[in-house]
Amino acid sequence: MKKEYMQGQEKKLPGVGFKKLKKILKKCRREDTHEVHDVRTCPDHCPVCDGSFFPALLKEMSAVVGFFNKRAQKLLDLHLASGFRKYFFWFKGKLRGNHVGLIEEGKDLVTYALINAIAIRKILKKYDKIHYSTQGQAFKSQAQSMHIGILQSPWLCELMAFHINLRETKTKSRKTPALFEGCSLKINDGKPSLACELFDSVKLDVDLTCSICLDTVFDPVALTCGHIFCFMCACSAASVTIVDGLKAAEPKEKCPLCRETRVYEGAVHLEELSMLLSRSCHEYWEQRLQTERIERIRQAKQHWESQCRAFMGV
């Protein structure tokens, strides 16, 4: 599936080589035509898969996620920039011809992510079918723990919110290109979730309930494992103050949901999602803002008091 999804892209985008990986599996099947694979030993004793299939897939998945995160972050930085920084990005974008296609590129990036997710799912399903095993799904879980699952990317969640925000605020503008209609914010029984549907086979739902406070995420952050929490809840789970921030968390601190370590340093503040929720859940957002303001002031006061005592040697 190495196809160009974005206009103006000079080089081919990294993608999951579905056909190439299928050829590797065909080679494996030819070599073991008369032998039934043992679920307990495959792929540990499958030299074709160990030597070619999984390393190739791992490399391609890493390239896809790296490219997607980089491009999505760049696009959203441009959209959220303000003041001099915004004009600098705008001028730079005009020179490169990218600013006009900002929305189109966002659509293409979401499509790119979902199509590669389909390719990964299909090739792993094919692997399990050939080997009579569940090792393909085990590899998928391993990839998620390595944070190279593209559907885990916090930037995918941000792009979904980006499209919903633009659709709700720019619909009256004639100059606005056709927006991606597959993304939506759903609220069921007061619980919001982000939904994205590209094809019938790909439906992505992102729960926006913080598993720590059990309320709608406020000032949301996504850890590198993909789980989303309120910023203050995440700081509490990481045993850091809001003044120090999540980057100050110890590597040993774990995600409250999946128990993965080293997930706080690369946490992403979901600004587009925050804007979407503040507009869609306005009353709740205002109440939560007042409540958290008191706690933030308290923590900031404690922090600076401790800093002053340390400076004075008290």
Score class of each variant (00 low, 15 high):
22 K>H: 13
138 A>R: 09
226 G>L: 00
256 P>W: 14
173 S>V: 04
8 G>K: 10
235 C>Y: 03
41 T>D: 12
230 C>M: 03
48 V>P: 04
165 N>A: 02
238 A>W: 05
59 K>I: 11
256 P>G: 14
302 Q>C: 12
177 P>N: 11
304 W>A: 06
149 G>Y: 09
95 L>Y: 08
282 H>L: 04
88 F>N: 04
90 W>N: 00
143 A>F: 10
289 L>A: 08
261 T>W: 11
196 C>A: 12
313 G>D: 10
102 L>C: 11
89 F>C: 01
58 L>P: 00
183 C>M: 01
63 A>E: 12
76 L>P: 00
236 S>R: 14
217 V>N: 08
164 I>W: 09
86 K>R: 15
6 M>S: 14
132 Y>L: 15
104 E>Q: 15
228 I>E: 03
303 H>M: 07
81 A>C: 08
90 W>E: 03
127 Y>S: 10
145 S>W: 06
165 N>L: 06
82 S>T: 11
228 I>Y: 01
51 G>R: 10
146 M>S: 11
187 I>M: 05
260 E>L: 12
173 S>Y: 08
196 C>T: 04
190 G>C: 09
103 I>F: 11
209 T>A: 05
108 D>P: 06
243 V>F: 04
278 S>V: 02
303 H>V: 05
135 Q>S: 15
18 F>Y: 15
257 L>Q: 13
38 D>K: 15
173 S>W: 03
231 F>A: 01
177 P>G: 11
55 P>G: 07
226 G>K: 00
257 L>N: 10
213 C>S: 09
239 S>K: 15
228 I>G: 00
209 T>Y: 04
162 F>A: 05
218 F>H: 13
213 C>L: 04
203 K>V: 05
68 F>S: 00
263 V>C: 14
263 V>A: 09
290 Q>E: 06
313 G>R: 10
44 D>R: 13
213 C>K: 01
123 I>E: 06
241 T>L: 13
89 F>K: 01
289 L>F: 08
71 R>Y: 02
173 S>Q: 07
152 Q>V: 09
206 V>C: 06
144 Q>P: 01
179 L>W: 06
237 A>E: 07
72 A>Y: 03
200 D>S: 14
254 K>W: 07
251 P>T: 09
135 Q>R: 14
15 G>S: 13
247 K>C: 10
104 E>H: 14
236 S>L: 10
310 A>M: 12
281 C>L: 13
203 K>P: 00
120 I>P: 00
